Simulated scan of single mutants.
Amino acid sequence: MKKIIFIAALLVIGIGAKAQNAVAIKPTDTAKLYNPAADAKTEIADAVKKASAEHKNVLLQIGGNWCIWCIRFNDLVTKDPDLNKYLRDNFVVLHVNYSKENTNEKLLAELGYPQRFGFPVFIVLDDKGNRIHTQNSGYLEEGKGHSKDKVMEFFKDWSPAAIDPKSYQASK
């Protein structure tokens, strides 16, 4: 039994070392996207209010500064001019922290436990604060990053116009 525990401990240490090396990839200055001390519930209420006034939806990007995939996604959508423009024209974006300092457990329970999909995970809220979609970011990945085409498709599929029945009928 002690051998099994010892072997398991070595495996965990080995996996942890690999994960630590993976995180050692030098992220850009966006490494502090997530604020563990933030009151996410209040920030979401403010984002919904802003989205309502601007006729947009809210995109919650849930993750942490520890998450290289979260940083990679943010880098893609902020540095690619097409994605950035579409995102800013259609969504109010909010980064919701999930880390050992603050898991936002109660909030994520209210949002249907999106962390089950890994990180980052995206929640789309309408301009009234209703959750209309949860997106597993794994479906947007390609290689060691995210696919611009898949991300744009996700944004377009959940934009205010896409879920407006009047816009849908007009496009037919």
Rank of each mutant, 00 (worst) to 15 (best):
91 F>M: 04
74 N>H: 10
106 K>E: 13
49 K>I: 08
9 A>F: 12
47 A>Y: 03
89 D>R: 05
56 K>E: 00
10 L>E: 10
153 E>W: 02
1 M>H: 10
13 I>W: 12
88 R>I: 11
37 A>R: 01
91 F>K: 04
110 E>M: 07
68 I>M: 14
159 S>Q: 05
82 D>R: 09
25 I>N: 06
43 E>C: 11
60 L>M: 03
94 L>C: 12
22 A>L: 13
19 A>I: 14
170 A>P: 01
84 N>T: 11
38 A>L: 07
49 K>G: 07
84 N>P: 05
150 K>R: 14
70 C>D: 04
57 N>H: 12
112 G>V: 05
158 W>T: 00
57 N>C: 06
118 G>H: 08
113 Y>M: 05
95 H>E: 14
129 G>P: 09
114 P>A: 03
31 A>E: 13
7 I>F: 11
107 L>S: 09
16 G>Y: 15
138 G>F: 15
170 A>C: 02
58 V>M: 06
30 T>N: 14
8 A>I: 08
32 K>H: 15
16 G>M: 14
87 L>K: 12
136 N>L: 02
35 N>M: 12
115 Q>E: 09
101 E>A: 13
146 H>T: 05
141 E>M: 15
146 H>N: 09
132 I>Y: 01
128 K>D: 00
117 F>V: 00
63 G>V: 04
45 A>M: 03
70 C>Y: 06
154 F>V: 06
123 I>S: 00
117 F>P: 00
167 S>G: 10
154 F>G: 00
135 Q>W: 03
72 R>K: 15
111 L>I: 05
162 A>L: 07
1 M>G: 06
114 P>V: 02
18 K>T: 06
31 A>W: 13
169 Q>M: 10
39 D>A: 06
